[in-house]
Design a protein around this nucleic acid. Structure first.
Lengths: 138, 138
DNA sequence: TCCAATCTCTATTTTGTTTATAGAAAATGT
DNA sequence: ACATTTTCTATAAACAAAATAGAGATTGGA
């Protein structure tokens, strides 16, 4: 299951995509409209900025806005950034690979199946973008 | 990612499937061969028994064994039992459904996508069984 | 009938992660 | 200079995962 943090990230991104008119949006506005704890949201937006998805402006008239079109932000990227691995085991993760303890990968039926799951999942999450889930045109 | 508990469950089931010769297998043997903390494994096997997947016998010559053919035990069942929901959000879970806070499901692009992910995942996890991952014939 | 072997049960502890909060610092526009 | 707003570092609180402990119940066999 996705953590609250990731769910908040998606809510914030959807809100920003739906209010993407060139004007920065206040953290406080997103927090209030989407019912997200303000200080928690600050952290999340900062991570999204550091990864290049969002950008921001300080001071009066400041706030957050997209650094790239929402249609370029794939859901897989957001999940990996905020949540971590998409695969169900470290030994089948593409971006967070780690060797399994006590599991011979060359000969592990479970990892074979979970690779299939990973690929099926990624084919969806890599093709859908924030624009898709926010119902805004590309 | 699957918890250690679920990974242990799969390891134990694979071991049992590969040593399925009518003789009960000791918890202690599985724990040692698969490097699983003994007392933790006890809990796990008990859950697998209560759900009907395994059965057991006490006393000398006792141990655990399958209550149904490994080829009947779908991976989805094991994950739901030990881990919980397979879906990425409560509001798209078939077996653990819960309404999302602050999310209008009729009109939430994210839940639409995560339903697709769920279906793709389930079509694999409902078709593969413990026999498949243990490489034993049905 | 007694005993050792083995699973069963309930409770607790330990450890780690997630979620949330606090407050000062830096940048910006007027 | 000042109010506004993001940025940063640190910490607290709550929760969940992982592991452990020890007594209880059942079984088979001597």
């Amino acid at each position: 299951m996705l953590s609250m943090k990731t769910q908040y990230a998606f809510k914030a991104l959807m809100y920003l995509a739906q209010n993407d008119n060139g004007e920065p949006v206040l953290i406080a506005e997103i927090a209030e409209k989407k019912n997200i704890p303000l200080k928690f949201l600050e952290n999340i937006l900062l991570e999204l900025k550091k990864s290049g998805i969002l950008n921001s402006k300080k001071g009066k008239g400041g706030g957050y806005f997209f650094n790239q079109p929402p249609s370029d932000v794939r859901l897989a990227k957001v999940i990996r950034l905020i949540e971590g691995p998409i695969a169900l085991l470290p030994c089948v993760s593409l971006n967070f690979y780690q060797k399994c303890k006590n599991c011979d990968e060359r000969n592990c039926g479970l990892s074979d199946v979970l690779k299939e799951v990973r690929d099926a999942t990624l084919s969806i999450l890599e093709s859908k973008t924030v624009a898709d889930i926010a119902n805004v045109k590309s």
